[in-house]
């Protein structure tokens, strides 16, 4: 962008979001600012991680109106009125989501940088498909990178979560 644009953008606007069930008003001086920076630097929700900044790794995954999105690819100016769920909003109050319980049971993490994005994506997957196969899980998470190599553990954890959820439902 040019310097001229930066000046033009400095007129402050506000965007209203519902983040993890709470109404938040964000002062926007640059409508192109990606959501990930709003969450981390403006709203203090640092569970969402910034990595590639170009939608390739999944570390910043959040739900926008229930759909998994890359927070690094969404301009805040386009989100007025949206409902956003971050890792902090997964689970019910103090209770862990079944995905989180299963990830703990399988000890499916090492450094954990990719984990918030995976938890968010997996919760969305189980919401629409309560009993995904290992192949479905791996395909759904193909956009999430883990450098520590926990893929196998994560897939096993999500199968475990599916079985646990099914057991509870029946």
């Amino acid at each position: 962008m040019s310097a001229h644009d930066a000046s033009a953008d400095s007129a402050i606007d506000t965007v209203v979001l519902v983040v993890n069930g709470e109404r938040r008003t964000v002062d926007v001086d640059d409508p192109r600012m990606p959501l990930v920076f709003v969450l981390r630097d403006r709203l203090g929700l640092r569970g969402t991680k910034l990595s590639c900044g170009c939608g390739e790794c999944g570390a910043c995954a959040v739900l926008v109106d229930g759909v998994e999105e890359r927070a690094c690819m969404l301009a805040i100016g386009d989100l007025d009125g949206s409902t956003v769920t971050t890792i902090e909003g997964i689970g019910d109050g103090g209770t862990l989501h079944p995905v989180q319980v299963a990830l703990l049971a399988e000890q499916a993490s090492q450094c954990g940088y990719c984990l918030p994005g995976i938890v968010v994506a997996a919760s969305a997957l189980l919401a629409r498909d309560p009993d995904p196969s290992e192949t479905t899980i791996a395909t759904t998470l193909a956009g999430h990178l883990c450098r520590c190599g926990t893929y196998g553990r994560v897939v096993r954890a999500l199968r475990r979560a599916a079985v646990a959820t099914k057991g509870r439902a029946t």
């Binding site: 630097d41 203090g44 640092r46 569970g47 969402t48 991680k49 910034l50 971050t86 890792i87 902090e88 997964i90 689970g91 862990l96 989180q100 990830l103 703990l104 000890q107 993490s109 450094c111 954990g112 940088y113 984990l115 918030p116 938890v119």
Partner: peptide, 23 residues
């Protein structure tokens, strides 16, 4: 024994502050 890692309960909740999260 396979005691669970001490860091993972916070990591699955996105509550584990990495160096990236210091402000």
């Amino acid at each position: 024994t396979s005691v669970p890692r001490v860091d993972l309960p916070d990591k699955v909740r996105g509550a584990f502050a990495l160096v990236h999260d210091i402000a």
